[in-house]
Design a protein around this nucleic acid. Structure first.
Length: 414
RNA sequence: GGAGAGAUGGCAGAGUGGUCGAAUGCGGCGGCUUCGAAAGCCGUUGUCUGGGCUUCCUGGACCGGGGGUUCGAAUCCCCCUCUCUCCGCCA
């Protein structure tokens, strides 16, 4: 959630920033108006309630002194009525305000380039040259077929479309990658967690998936539980509604999890292969930092993901997302895109975001700075998406006969 | 799934209608003591939010969540959620 005080005090600046993300001035005017109205109504209510409290205290005294209570009761009764009315109004306004505020995306960082769509993302650098092939490289689904690695039909039979089954070496490769990624992250100081793969709605509100993006989630019937779309949700919310000690920051956490996404708006996209599945494996990094240190941790996380790709021998590039392509909670995001020789293009394999205090405010994650409680910064990033890494290895390590080499760093994991 | 017990501050745990934002203990923080430490002693110590003459003063809200009774609710009533114990079932 954005800082409403900041919106109130620096409206022009704030609306300028959000306009770049497609939030119109009218919405922001409404939001600001509601905020001010809420404050006013609260003040009105509190004044009446203060008087009511004062008289109620008197009541006890009068009674002990055996004084006549009729007049006092009348006065406090009418105050009570008035307070109830004002309280209801204040609460209604608060709720309207809340609903609207929860739907506003984060302010983009000053560094974020302005853009209309993903075409306006800015490439920062390329790491490793794409390899040369003496034969036309195949796409991963062909290779999957030839090697018996992925069973698409039976995945669909077991669940529905966009589910697949990994078999034999492919399944082993997935297991190897998970272990390799976790080891790498731990070397960088991340602590490994094993987490619930379901979260309740409060947690999903904390990280920003709810209430706006419910359609993207799988919900468990009859329970207030959702399958997690990323381990970012449970990792970040580990410290939901907690006040941390400043000297335990930064908290660096990593976890493997399956990720479940309905891909509601993606009908028809990437229908072949396992680029876009309802369930995929991912190893996630999450950091909870002091607000002044989130930038350096961000760089470290991008560096870490890039290093892993480099060790795997996978050519990739870093892309700074433009304002239009930023995720809802992110102030800044760098995507890592891996080269797929079969598709002859770069595809997202990791995404590192700094949400600054946006999630922290929603999830109430704070730290003690002297006497004051301040909001932390939260960051998340994949290191890496396992399914897409398998795709990348298949396409980059394919031989002319269709067989697939295993990257050297993974040998001890297989 | 059946039966019962419970949910209070960082933790433990009192509080059954007003003077309770809440005893006490532990922990934390500050000080005294000490060469230093431990022990001991003294003091301090919840969160959110509004206002003000903004190292301080002051209003409101919060005792799992929601509603109700009452001039007044942590305390009484109703609903929900969660936790624990026992039994059953089960990886």
């Amino acid at each position: 959630m954005i800082d409403l005080k900041y919106l109130q005090n620096s409206f022009d600046e704030a609306s300028q920033k959000l306009k770049r993300r497609g939030v119109d001035d009218e919405t922001l005017e409404t939001l600001k108006g509601l905020f001010e109205e809420m404050k006013r109504k609260n003040a009105d209510f509190e004044a009446v309630r203060a008087e009511q409290n004062r008289l109620s205290k008197l009541f006890g005294e009068y009674k002990r002194q055996n004084r006549d209570l009729t007049e006092l009761k009348e006065r406090v009764d009418s105050l009570k009525k008035e307070a109830a009315q004002l309280h209801k109004e204040a609460k209604d306004t608060q709720e309207t305000l809340n609903t609207l505020a929860l739907s506003i995306p984060n302010f983009p960082d000053e560094r974020v380039p302005y853009g209309m769509d993903e075409e306006d993302n800015v490439e920062i650098k390329r790491i490793l040259e794409p390899g040369k092939f003496d034969f036309p490289p195949k796409e991963h689904w062909e290779l999957a077929q030839e090697n018996g690695w992925i069973d698409f039909e039976r995945g669909v039979k077991l669940a529905k479309s966009r589910f697949a089954v990994l078999r034999g070496e492919a399944a082993m490769l997935q297991r190897a990658l998970i272990n390799y990624f976790l080891d790498k992250n731990m070397q960088k100081g991340f602590v490994e967690y094993a987490l619930p793969f379901m979260s309740n709605s409060d947690m999903l509100k904390g990280t920003g998936q709810l209430p706006k993006f419910e359609d993207d989630l799988f919900k468990v019937c009859e329970e207030d539980l959702y399958l997690i779309p990323t381990a970012e949700v449970p990792l970040t919310n580990l410290f939901h509604d907690e006040i941390l000690d400043m000297d335990e920051l930064p908290l660096l956490m990593t976890a493997y999890s399956p990720c479940f996404r309905r891909e509601a708006g993606s009908a028809g996209r990437d229908t072949r292969g396992i680029i876009r599945q309802h369930q995929f494996a991912k190893v996630e990094m999450v950091a909870i930092t002091h607000p002044e240190r989130s930038d350096e941790v961000f760089d470290m996380m991008v560096q870490n993901a890039s290093e892993i790709l480099e060790e795997l021998g996978l050519p990739h590039r870093l892309v700074e997302l433009c304002s239009a392509d930023l995720g809802f909670s992110a102030a800044r995001t760098i995507d890592l895109e891996v080269w797929l020789p079969g598709q002859k293009r770069y595809r997202e394999i990791s995404s590192v975001s700094n949400t600054r205090d946006f999630q922290a405010r929603r999830a109430k994650i704070r730290f003690k700075d002297g006497k004051k409680n301040r909001l932390v910064h939260t960051l998340n990033g994949s290191a890496l998406a396992v399914g897409r890494t398998i795709v990348a290895i298949m396409e980059n390590y394919q031989r002319e006969d269709g067989s697939i080499e295993i990257p050297e760093v993974l040998e001890k994991y297989m």
